[in-house]
Design a protein around this nucleic acid. Structure first.
Lengths: 239, 239
DNA sequence: CGCTGCTTTGAAGCCCTTCAAACCAGGTGG
DNA sequence: CCACCTGGTTTGAAGGGCTTCAAAGCAGCG
């Protein structure tokens, strides 16, 4: 059930059998959630975190006039709101993009981890810091990259992340989201997303159609957006 | 020496005398650094974190063609790279904007904290999560707010943050940075930053001149950018 | 007094948005 | 089985916000 989560952790550091058991011990209820549902409203007081087992979720902030920015996407294996363990209230909302299966993890269980498993605590801490690193890269995209570079960078990132949890094939990967949602990630209108996707297609770099990304020229795609996966911290370092 | 850091922590949760002593015990060398210096190059393996005692620093990422995005600003009291404790290598650089005084905190000392002070560990973890929340808000600014709203939001945020550590007066606050650096935060050119500042001035909202922000119409400023400080998590909640 | 770095202003251009409408696929019901 | 509806994709045309390029103004300093 938590294999994907373990894959993500083990891509960064080793996890002992004891620690693995401890993680399993934190799990509470497992629930299925339909697509396009706001799971957490901003500002709610939380006493549990959510481990995403299957599907895709996003963190978002809404502005007046219906503008929405998705600030980060989460995939299977991600602890989507582990930061709520220390923040208690989230400053953003969380929604599903696809149907999702999740396991809830009560904060009391996490609290025990912090007093009994220092190394595992550092690993969980690390995982919120990697979330922040991803966020940082998105900030750079929005601040300095052109629309097409932004899109390319996004697709490169998602390929690596899906790869970590075994959800990417050599030719591409499944990505169940609309062009409008893509626009909410990239800070673009859906109209312009459409034009950008067309351009990527016409340049022979990649295709995004029917909920699937097909990568045709991986090197060209990376070159276009200067993709460097260092920010995903895929190195085993003792923490 | 660490009063500002304690002020920032205590704005969110209580810190016991023991914990305060433990923090003092982590401190190593104290150093003065000149303005406009890259303190940490991206990708360096780190074995210490840096507590900013005085001055202002920024996290940045450079792209080819000399483009730079500052992803977050840090002020006195901030642990500027506490996340390096778990990440070990930073995916971004860190530079000074003003002359700075810092205290280095060896990671071995932090590691001891994580095994002996679970509550303090959660507080440190929290502080990296607040950094992430700030980052998230910047992402929203870059993705969805206009240039003038972005600037207004930035100035509102900095006022609150300086206020937390006692560096804001009712009329405004000191902010030692150039318009070009502001542009690197806001994802704008220095030329456009200049026009935006002019507009803020002409609307009677605020002035930024000579390293000082003078706020004339706080409510108007907040209204312009829909500023809601919730993301700074200024509430005392037991962690 | 002239240099240097920062600020300010103007003019032209481009990237992305806005508005509008056509197209297309899948699902539903008559 | 097709007509219709709905949600998403695609395309065109016009407009605007921000950039780019260029140059002048200004303050501090050796």
């Amino acid at each position: 059930m938590i294999e994907k989560h373990l894959m993500a952790l083990r891509a960064r550091d080793s996890v002992s059998a004891d620690e693995e058991a401890a993680i399993r011990g934190t799990l509470g209820e497992v629930v299925q959630i339909r697509a396009d549902k706001t799971v957490i409203e901003p500002g709610t007081l939380l006493d549990r975190s959510t481990l995403l087992l299957e599907g895709m979720m996003g963190r978002f902030k809404d502005l007046s006039q219906g503008q929405r920015q998705i600030t980060e996407l989460h995939i299977a294996g991600d602890f989507i709101d582990l930061h709520s363990f220390t923040l208690k209230k989230l400053d953003h909302g969380i929604m599903t993009l696809t149907p999702c299966r999740v396991a809830y993890v009560p904060h009391v269980n996490l609290r025990e981890i912090t007093s009994e498993f220092p190394h595992l605590t550092r690993l969980f801490w690390l995982s919120t810091n990697i979330d922040a690193a991803i966020q940082r890269e998105w900030t750079v995209s929005l601040g300095r990259r052109t629309a097409i570079q932004r899109a390319a960078h996004f697709f490169c990132e998602m390929e690596v992340r899906f790869g970590i949890v075994g959800l990417a094939e050599p030719t591409g990967y499944a990505l169940q989201m609309t062009q409008a949602e893509l626009g909410e990630c990239l800070g673009l209108t859906s109209v312009h997303v459409n034009r950008v996707l067309k351009e990527l297609r016409e340049r022979g770099l990649m295709e995004f159609r029917g909920g699937r990304v097909r990568i045709q020229d991986r090197e060209g795609l990376k070159r276009l957006c200067e993709f460097d996966p260092a920010y995903l911290h895929l190195e085993k370092i003792e923490r």
